[in-house]
Simulated scan of single mutants.
Amino acid sequence: MIWKIKVKDIIAKRHMKIEDDYYTETINLHTGTYKVIDNVFHVKISIVYTDNTIIVGGVVKGKIERPCDRCLETSILELEGTIEGIYDLESEPNFKDSEIENLKNVIYYKGEVIDLEERIIEALVVSAPDVFVCDENCKGLCQYCGENLNLHPDHKCEKMEEFSIDPRFEKLLKLKEKLSNN
């Protein structure tokens, strides 16, 4: 498979470039599982070997279908992630000295094959936003009945009347009504 690279090949070539497509129907992100548009992400990776270290860098781009967090309509989200990793082939992790300054993206590695698919997925997960809005002007849903306010901008909800007002806010409501009448 193209995404599994033998360490000995990287050492022999010292520098490699890979530009190819990563195929998958869905992707699991921290906010859910989503359909990948055209089942493909475009990947460009550069791999360099120097001083018992393999440095991996690149980008991954693609689109997924994801529901908007305001109106729940399915929309297209473009993802662009940065692929990065440093495979240290010589050292061992020093857990006694694990301060933030030492938490670089260093992978202490003793295997024979590097699986770049892990770095691709990591880049996509990190690039995905926690909150996705289909449009910055998305009006969302009516908080009382769930009507999509983008489709019905003049929506007046009858159910709003049914909800009783919290007695702690009755005085504020009366003040608001009084101010709006002036």
Rank of each mutant, 00 (worst) to 15 (best):
T53H: 02
L175E: 12
Y23I: 14
K178V: 01
E112R: 08
T31H: 02
K178W: 03
M160T: 05
K6Q: 10
K8W: 02
S91E: 15
K6I: 00
L29T: 03
I47W: 01
I165T: 14
H42T: 12
N148M: 01
H152E: 15
S98T: 03
R70Y: 13
I107S: 03
D9T: 07
K8G: 00
G57E: 14
R66P: 06
T31F: 03
V56L: 03
A12W: 03
V43M: 10
F41V: 05
V48F: 08
E84L: 09
L173R: 14
K174I: 03
V133L: 06
Q143D: 10
N182Q: 14
L29K: 04
M160I: 04
G58Y: 10
C145P: 09
Y49S: 01
C145A: 08
E84T: 04
T24N: 07
L151K: 15
E78G: 08
D9G: 10
Y108K: 11
I18S: 00
F95Q: 08
M1N: 13
K156Y: 06
D20K: 11
T33G: 00
E118I: 11
D166G: 01
Y34H: 12
Y144G: 05
C134R: 03
E80Q: 15
A123P: 02
R119K: 12
L29P: 03
I47L: 10
T24K: 09
E80D: 13
S98H: 10
K139L: 15
P153N: 09
D154T: 10
E161Q: 13
G146Q: 07
E147H: 00
L173Y: 05
K4T: 10
N39I: 00
I64T: 09
L89C: 05
T24F: 00
F163Y: 14
K44L: 09
N52V: 02
I76A: 04
F41H: 06
T33F: 00
H42W: 03
I114W: 08
I64A: 09
N102D: 12
E73C: 06
G62L: 06
I64Y: 04
K174Y: 00
I55H: 11
L172V: 04
T31Y: 00
T33R: 12
L72Q: 08
L179C: 01
E65P: 00
K176M: 13
H42Y: 11
N39P: 02
E136G: 01
E19W: 00
K17T: 14
G146M: 08
I120F: 07
V133D: 07
A12M: 06
P93C: 00
S75R: 12
E92K: 15
D166T: 08
D20M: 02
M160Y: 07
M1E: 13
N105L: 02
N150A: 05
V125G: 03
E162G: 07
N105G: 00
E73Q: 15
K35H: 10
I47T: 04
D88R: 11
K96D: 15
K13N: 14
D115T: 10
I55F: 12
D166L: 07
K110R: 15
F41I: 04
K6R: 14
S180H: 06
R119A: 11
L179W: 01
I10E: 11
L72H: 06
Y109M: 02
E65C: 01
N52C: 05
I107G: 01
T53R: 13
Y87F: 15
V106S: 02
C68R: 05
I27H: 05
E92G: 01
D130A: 08
D38A: 10
D88W: 08
K44D: 11
Y108H: 14
S164A: 13
E170M: 14
S127H: 05
S164M: 07
M1H: 12
